[in-house]
């Protein structure tokens, strides 16, 4: 009965998401594409924070995926969707390498260490014109090849087509992340976060689980980067600088990171606020100002994020996670 209702609700959401771009202007459709990619980015950021460490290098890891996918497709002629996957894997691999030094650090030191590692990668892009294109970056990145599926002619230059593509990819990734979190693996992530020593006493290799969360999150971030690179057709070091990282941080903190949907909510609300409301009022230049203010205000007055407001409205299903982890949840 309840699962039937849930199914209906999901179908409703799906239809709404598919219909959404048709009610928007061209520039709003483009914003929608980036918003969808950013949802993947911020959701992957939350996966990273699940084990308790906050990184300042996540956007650079996204950039690794973007640069790698761009290079594979442009220089080696790899089929674009395959290049995207390879880009994501490259980001995951780089993250794996970084995890050895970084997970020797904790808290503030991890934050600074991840920032330093990210900056080094970004400066390497800037410094080496071969193959990274230096300050100007890489341009002329091939787009996703057009396909005709009969019901819809996908011309990926067009934001609506690309939005559908991105929507499908991002939905699948979110489903994967959701499955991971609602599994014994996800429970172990939480355990490592709250009491890593106790988890180790129970036989959990805390370092391995931190690395696992970091690598998975980085893979998804890399994919987000690849999706962005092949839409814009260009990447450069500035698009992955600390300011972009602060935006991601703001989405996550304003939304709250205790729930799966918190950071996504933060990303959507702030993007809508910025692009629709501020742009509508002609204030779009004030984006950093507003983000800075919101960051401070939410740390001060809404430390648990927007999700805590939702939590007050919706009845809490405290045991649903446990039920999922032990496999007792009825199949929908």
């Amino acid at each position: 009965m309840r699962s039937g209702l849930a199914l209906l609700a999901w179908i409703g959401v799906g239809v709404a998401l598919i219909a959404l771009p048709h009610g928007l202007s061209f520039s709003q459709q483009e914003i929608l594409v980036f918003l969808t990619i950013n949802v993947l980015l911020v959701a992957s950021y939350r996966m990273l924070t699940l084990t308790g460490e906050w990184s300042l290098g996540h956007v650079v890891i996204m950039g690794v995926g973007a640069y790698a996918s761009a290079l594979y497709s442009k220089h080696f002629g790899v089929f674009v969707p395959a290049a995207m996957l390879l880009g994501a894997m490259t980001a995951a691999l780089i993250a794996m390498g970084l995890s050895y030094p970084l997970f020797r650090m904790k808290g503030f030191y991890f934050l600074i260490g991840s920032f330093a590692a990210g900056e080094i990668i970004r400066l390497l892009w800037k410094r080496f014109r071969e193959p990274f294109g230096g300050v100007k970056g890489i341009t002329g990145i091939p787009p996703v090849p057009d396909v005709n599926l009969g019901i819809w002619d996908f011309v990926f230059f067009d934001p609506i087509s690309y939005y559908y593509f991105v929507l499908a990819v991002v939905s699948f990734c979110l489903w994967l992340m959701w499955r991971i979190e609602r599994s014994p693996v996800g429970l172990t992530f939480h355990a490592v976060h709250w009491q890593d020593k106790l988890a180790e006493a129970a036989g959990v290799n805390a370092r391995a689980y931190r690395t696992l969360a970091f690598v998975i999150a980085s893979g998804f971030a890399g994919l987000a980067g690849a999706l962005q690179a092949h839409y814009i057709g260009a990447v450069n070091p500035t698009s992955f600088d600390i300011e972009q990282m602060v935006f991601v941080l703001t989405w996550a903190i304003v939304g709250g990171t205790a729930t799966f949907y918190g950071p996504i909510l933060g990303c959507i609300v702030l993007t809508v606020l910025n692009e629709i409301v501020l742009r509508g009022l002609g204030f779009e230049q004030t984006r950093p100002l507003i983000y800075g203010l919101l960051l401070i205000l939410s740390v001060l007055f809404l430390p648990k994020g927007l999700e805590s407001l939702v939590g007050r409205v919706l009845p809490r299903r405290a045991t649903s996670r446990t039920r999922a982890i032990i496999g007792a949840e009825e199949k929908a």
Partner: peptide
């Protein structure tokens, strides 16, 4: 918060 202040 200091990052927020930086942006402001």
């Amino acid at each position: 918060a200091s990052i927020g202040f930086l942006m402001i």
